[in-house]
Design a protein around this nucleic acid. Structure first.
Lengths: 169, 169
DNA sequence: CCGTATCCTGATAGATACTG
DNA sequence: CAGTATCTATCAGGATACGG
């Protein structure tokens, strides 16, 4: 048995490592529901309107409203007013940088689902617009190598300190 | 307003595209809970024993048992018997290829959480073992470019057909 | 077209106690 | 060490109806 990931310090030293401080856990607390991830997928596809989100994700308006509000409050979307000529003011949900930066996670889920959960191949193909070249999500080192689990090493960040509560929180 | 992702055919043509067939939705149906993702994170860290999963993820044994069984039945983990000298037989949960291949998704969540949900920087650093070089999750084309949302184009796969139910399912 | 309000069901998950 | 059993609270999400 080889240890998949080599820890420089054992993670079961829980005095310095609480589960609530894990970035994965924090991320899941915000986008850890099916509807939240699917709404983001729709946003990546270009959807901006409430009705498009609800109908295309296949969830009820009540769920869409609640999750769009959650994602907006969390900072992944902004609600922007706009008006077309002669129409009354409407709103659209636009991705923020924070929302856009979750793209790799959603695409990684899609790529995994394509490989293991589709009997008949990928229903959708992702390509780079300018070259037509297929697109993949990769784990890669700055040295330029693709990194497998066995080559992955996890270190505590010695510069990190437990955040102190601020007034602004 | 630029459309973030350019669709060759509009996705709201729902006659060919049902939400349940989306790979992201299927993936979320299996690993779309906080505890499932956190258990996988622990498996990537090298945890294999029931007790390690429960205690280090910070969930109850009841939840750990249910989710480990779910992940095993879904094919992401296998339950392997083993015995150390003079000890009785025990079991360990080992990642399958299917489970290992979800690593990019979990690392992408970690990377996103590190950037937006940690006030004091990343608690953990990921490096390539052989070079010590920092590791990132990237969206990249086969042509070798990193791909931003604006450069991402989604196409229906014309070779894909709606799966027919098989006896073996 | 863009939501809100209410009610209801099922799943997620915590607490606690107990077994081989 | 590796779970099972029970009981409960909270939350995701569907259905339906209604308001700007």
């Amino acid at each position: 048995m080889t240890m998949p990931a080599v820890m420089e310090e054992p993670l079961n030293d829980l005095s310095k490592w609480k589960a609530e401080e894990c970035s994965v856990a924090k991320a899941m607390d915000i986008v850890g529901t099916r509807s939240a991830i699917l709404l983001l997928r729709e946003a990546y596809y270009g959807t901006t309107r409430f009705d498009g989100f609800a109908s295309r994700v296949g969830i009820t308006e009540a769920v869409a409203a609640k999750q769009l509000k959650r994602l907006t409050e969390a900072g992944l979307l902004t609600k922007q007013p706009y008006r077309e000529a002669g129409q009354r003011t409407r709103h659209e949900y636009v991705l923020t940088d924070m929302g856009r930066d979750l793209l790799p996670a959603v695409l990684a889920l899609m790529q995994w689902g394509d490989k293991y959960l589709q009997e008949a191949g990928s229903p959708l193909l992702l390509v780079e617009d300018s070259t037509g070249s297929p697109v993949r999500v990769e784990v890669r080192s700055e040295a330029g190598n693709e990194v497998e689990l066995e080559q992955l090493r996890v270190r505590f960040n010695r510069n990190w300190r437990r955040p102190k509560r601020r007034e602004s929180d």
